[in-house]
């Protein structure tokens, strides 16, 4: 059985999706997620080092998805939020184990490990962080 979606596309992002692995500029202290190849402030003067983010933050803004893309039909309505992490970066992720009306701007959240999507019945299962109420 052949798979339909790119294996390497998801595989390449396993460290950031499984462990919230971002990076930090040793020169200016700026934290990036997803990890960047170059510090946006220091440019070539910056030195980037891996940084595991703690997963704690708050909802900066959110929306409830009711017209989902393919593969997410059984999860509607689900909440997609921009979360401001304690370390600084803004990060987009799903908020799970909640109904949309339970979510509010400023709500403290923490990251958990969940299934995101699967490539049909025979393909791989993709896992990543989501957020729950802290």
């Amino acid at each position: 059985m052949t798979h339909r979606k790119s294996l390497s596309l998801n595989w390449r992002r396993i460290p950031e999706r499984y462990q919230l692995l971002g990076n930090e500029c040793a020169t200016c202290g700026a934290v990036f997620f997803p990890p960047r190849a170059l510090c946006s402030k220091c440019r070539r003067k910056g030195t980037l080092e891996d940084k595991k983010l703690g997963g704690l933050g708050e909802v900066f803004t959110f929306t409830a998805v009711r017209s989902p893309p393919e593969g997410f039909e059984h999860q509607i309505p689900y909440v997609l939020a921009i979360v401001k992490l304690k370390e600084g970066p803004f990060i987009t992720g799903m908020v799970t184990d909640v109904e949309p009306q339970e979510v509010s701007i400023g709500m403290p959240v923490r990251s958990v490990f969940r299934r995101i999507s699967e490539d049909g019945k025979h393909g791989v299962i993709n896992y990543a962080f989501k957020f729950v109420r802290a």
Binding site: Q75, D97, F113, R114, R115, I116, I125, Y127, K130
Partner: peptide
């Protein structure tokens, strides 16, 4: 939940 399985619970 729909997005939980043995891997996510184990983690």
């Amino acid at each position: 939940n729909y997005d939980e399985d043995t891997a996510t619970i184990s983690v």
